[in-house]
């Protein structure tokens, strides 16, 4: 773990003052890394994502939160080229990414992890890591047949992989199959593997899901560590405690739209966010209505009588 990161007990250094003007959904950022406009995605009659305008600040940790079915993962898939939007365009570091296939997006420096961890089970942990490195000569089929052309690069990649594995405390597992890792270790492996490509933007889809509390703290530290190394992090998460703890900026989605954004504490007290999570009538009593009850009972009685007569 890097010594730049504050000790785990204290609170991390937050980036502040990233927006321009008043904080409203879609507020422009001083230094955005992703700018998305009019991105929509429908599945049949369901509009999963309908984002008018959103900007993700550079070199900060942005959390994407929202209730289940809000379209967070779909939005993630769209941004990374794993799904195609119906309309809309977005740029990553000024380059338009709409219509770019997922593997090119990754090569541009925007790597992602998955909600359901995708460890490559029957590859060793080390091979999983090595696969993450970019620009490998030996990945060309014909060059692959001439090992002296790629052996040196392979050694460099292996050294880098071992260093990263040591940081993530997986180095003792390097020769084991990834399938033998625990769920939390797989999350760590997936994140470490993503880092092999020296990304600019790391997108983590629910990095904490299914991770035991003992590992949570170390995962948090790793995410904070990414920021101190100059990377930008965008993550989807349900654990509000964690969001409050590490996020510099929070974007809230509900029913496909961005309903609120801002610094964590401000967002969590925003009425729109509370509505999104609990429904806008959460403080009204939806209990039994005696008149309605009576009517229902009468209707049922009538039905039963009609049955008896026939």
């Amino acid at each position: 773990m890097s010594s730049d990161v504050k000790p785990t007990k204290g609170s991390p250094v937050k980036s502040v003052d990233m927006h321009v003007g008043e904080i409203v959904p879609g507020v422009p950022k001083k230094d955005p890394i992703i700018v998305a406009d009019h991105v929509t995605r429908t599945f049949g009659g369901l509009t999963a994502v309908d984002v008018d305008h959103v900007e993700i600040p550079r070199n900060a940790i942005t959390a994407l939160i929202g209730p289940n079915g809000a379209g967070k993962t779909t939005f993630f898939n769209l941004l990374t080229g794993f799904d195609k939007p119906d309309t809309g365009k977005w740029t990553f570091m000024g380059k338009s990414l709409a219509g770019i296939p997922s593997f090119r997006v990754a090569r541009l420096g925007q790597v992602r992890t998955f909600q359901l961890t995708k460890a490559l089970s029957l590859l060793t942990v080390l091979d999983n890591m090595k696969l993450g490195a970019k620009g490998q000569k030996g990945e060309n089929m014909f060059v692959a047949l001439l090992p002296w052309l790629w052996r040196k690069q392979e050694e460099e990649i292996e050294a880098k992989a071992m260093e990263l594995l040591a940081r993530f405390k997986l180095d003792t597992k390097a020769e084991d199959y990834a399938a033998s890792l625990s769920g939390g270790q797989r999350k760590l492996l997936e994140m470490a593997r993503a880092l092999m490509s020296d990304p600019t933007l790391v997108m983590l889809d629910e990095p904490m899901a299914g991770v035991n509390p003992a590992l949570t703290q170390s995962l948090l530290d790793h995410i904070l560590d990414l920021k101190t190394q100059g990377m930008t992090v965008l993550f989807v998460e349900h654990d509000m405690q964690m969001v409050r703890h590490i996020a510099d900026w929070v974007i809230v989605m509900a029913e496909g739209k961005i309903v609120a954004e801002g610094p964590p504490d401000a967002v969590m007290s925003n009425p729109a966010v509370i509505d999104a999570y609990l429904g806008s009538h959460h403080d009204q009593d939806l209990g039994e209505d005696p008149d309605q009850e009576k009517e229902n009972v009468n209707a049922i009685k009538e039905l039963l009588d009609a049955d008896d007569k026939s």
Binding site: T80, F103, A106, V111, K118, L120, L131, S197
Partner: peptide
Amino acid sequence: DAVRALGK
């Protein structure tokens, strides 16, 4: 998909 996400 995992391999695709790694830029291959």
